[in-house]
Structure formats: C-alpha cells, structure tokens
Amino acid sequence: MLIFLDTETTGLEIKDRLCALGMITEEMNHFELINPGKKIPPSASAIHHITNEMVSDAPSFSQSISAEQLKSLNTPENILVSHNAPFELSMLEKEGITWQGSVIDTLKCSKSLMDDLEGYSLQFLRYELRLYRDEIRVFAEAGIPIIAHHALSDALHTRMILDYLLDLADMDRLIEISKSHVLLSRLPFGKYAKKRIEEIALKDPGYLKWMSESLMDMDEDLRYSIGYYLNRL
C-alpha cells in the first residue's frame, strides 16, 4: 500500500515538533492537528497558518488518531511517499515511530530525474509540471480542498508528483533513488546559482568549501555533490 504523508511543524530545527499531519491511502484521507507541546512561532504560522490557539485543545501525538493509524500501517510491505522524506521521517522518529517499509522521496526523485529545473519545492513543481491543469478534478474526486502548505492538500500534490515520476521511472527505481545520494549538476543558489558545480569546483573551490563548512542546514544531496566534485580535483 502507498501512504502519502505530509506534516506541518513548529520549525525546521532539532527541537521542533509536529503540529499537523495529513495522510492519504487508497482507503482514507486523514488530517489532524497535533499539540506539539511547545509554542508555534509566528515564522511557522506564516507558512502553514496553524496558530497556538488552534492546537491548544488538540491531542499530543501519542494520544492522536494519527499515531494509531501510522502504527497500524507501519509494516515492511507498505511504502511511505513524501516530499522531503528524510525530514518527515525524522519528525516521526521524535514521536517514537521508525518507519519499517520502503520510502519514496518525491523531492529526491525529482532532482535525480529532472536535474535541469530551477527549483524542486512542492509548490514549484505544482506549476513547473503543470499539475494545476488536473488538480481541480483530482482534488474534487478526493474531496480535499486545494490549500498550499496544508498537510492533506500537500499530501495529494505529492501523489500527483509521484504519478508524474512514474512516467520517468518505475516504482523500484524510485525507491532505489530515494535510498541514495543524488549527484546534482548545478548549484541551486548563491552567487553561482544555476552554474555547474563541476565548473565552480575548478574555478572557485574555496567558495564551495565555504558553503559546505558554513551552511549547517544544507540539503544533503547538495552537500554530497559539492564534496564529490571537490574530491575530484
């Protein structure tokens, strides 16, 4: 079974926790607010529009329906599909759930199979891949409103991205890509944005070394790619 998962959180740091979870399977659409046990900062609310008042009476994750459902679905034969799966899995592990099945990371697979795009965020791909042409029908059939940065809406857009990716590679290949580092060819940001990392390594290796040593929240595939090209010098 495929399980499409998206979460909203109090932030992106180690101390942050879940404040909402959206999940789609062939049998259900599930959304639930979660009391994170800590304050949701305005910077996070500005993205997902979840406030402290909204979660004040919500259950903790351990007492939530989401926890019960995930525990029942956490079996080796099920496949979890998420956009930036390592982050989602790390958030679940904070709540005591270590995923047992296979994983498809649509972010990593998009980077690997479409390496010439300007961006890979969920909302960017929504427009780059022209998912909007079919999303009204798809969302209406699922009974889900289209709301960017809402966990259930984002889970359905993740399903649409997977459908697109399956025209480029089969399920086994997507699972394999999701396990591996993706070798990126271009730098996504900075003063050399969109330039080939291999060329930057030859012309200005110091800049790449600075990025790798200074940007602690750098994407794991970008860090791997920078190291790969620097080691070839």
Rank of each mutant, 00 (worst) to 15 (best):
L113A: 07
E176K: 06
H30L: 14
S60M: 14
A67V: 01
A169G: 02
A20N: 00
C109W: 04
D116M: 09
A169T: 11
T7W: 02
A148H: 15
P42R: 07
V81F: 00
E213D: 15
S45Y: 02
Y132V: 09
S90Q: 05
M218W: 10
S43F: 09
A85Y: 01
D6C: 10
L80A: 07
L18C: 09
T98Y: 00
L89C: 09
H181Y: 15
V138Y: 12
Y164K: 14
S102E: 12
S102P: 02
I47G: 07
P36T: 03
N231S: 15
T158G: 06
L117Y: 05
M91Q: 13
R159I: 08
I177W: 04
Y127H: 04
L80S: 04
R133M: 03
S62D: 13
G37Y: 10
E68D: 09
M114I: 01
N74T: 05
M23K: 04
I40T: 05
L156M: 01
S112K: 08
E135Q: 04
I200Q: 10
T25Y: 02
S43D: 12
N29V: 01
V103I: 15
K111L: 08
D105S: 08
L125S: 00
L230M: 13
E77T: 04
E53M: 06
E8Y: 12
P41L: 03
L233T: 07
G96V: 05
T7G: 04
H48F: 05
I24K: 15
G119I: 02
I97T: 03
I104H: 02
I97N: 08
A20V: 01
E141W: 05
S225H: 04
H83T: 05
A140N: 12
D116S: 11
Y164H: 14
P42V: 14
K15D: 12
H48W: 13
E27R: 09
R17F: 05
M28V: 09
I40E: 10
I226Q: 10
Y207R: 11
